[in-house]
């Protein structure tokens, strides 16, 4: 937790504190690592808080885009055969 968090916890409004707590969970929510209680709390919050919903939506979209767009390098033809050949040779040695 940074100094900003400490100051906000002491002097910040309740709404700001709620947002900060919820945004701390964002990665866990996206990666399905949060527990059911956290997930519930998160869902309830973003239903009524537009800025937090937008942050969630952006991160979720980036995660999806990465999965769809960055998995395209396919192994060259012959790699599987070459691996099998080397293994059968090492087995005989």
């Amino acid at each position: 937790m940074g100094l900003k968090n400490v100051i906000n916890n002491l002097f910040g409004s309740k709404e700001e504190n709620d947002c900060m707590k919820v945004l701390d969970m964002l990665d866990s929510i996206l990666d399905e690592e949060a527990n059911p209680a956290e997930t519930q709390k998160f869902k309830e919050h973003i239903e009524k808080c537009m800025p937090c919903y937008e942050k969630y939506n952006l991160d979720k979209s980036i995660k999806e885009l990465l999965r769809v767009r960055c998995n395209h390098s396919k192994p060259p033809a012959g790699l599987v055969d070459s691996i099998r050949l080397q293994i059968s040779q090492s087995g005989r040695a």
Binding site: C70, S73, L79
Partner: peptide, 23 residues
Amino acid sequence: IDSLYNFAHRLTFDEDDAKDLVQ
């Protein structure tokens, strides 16, 4: 093998190096 090759390619940025790494 597809996932491993993609990982190797994004680590090395080179097709031959990625192939060697997967092999």
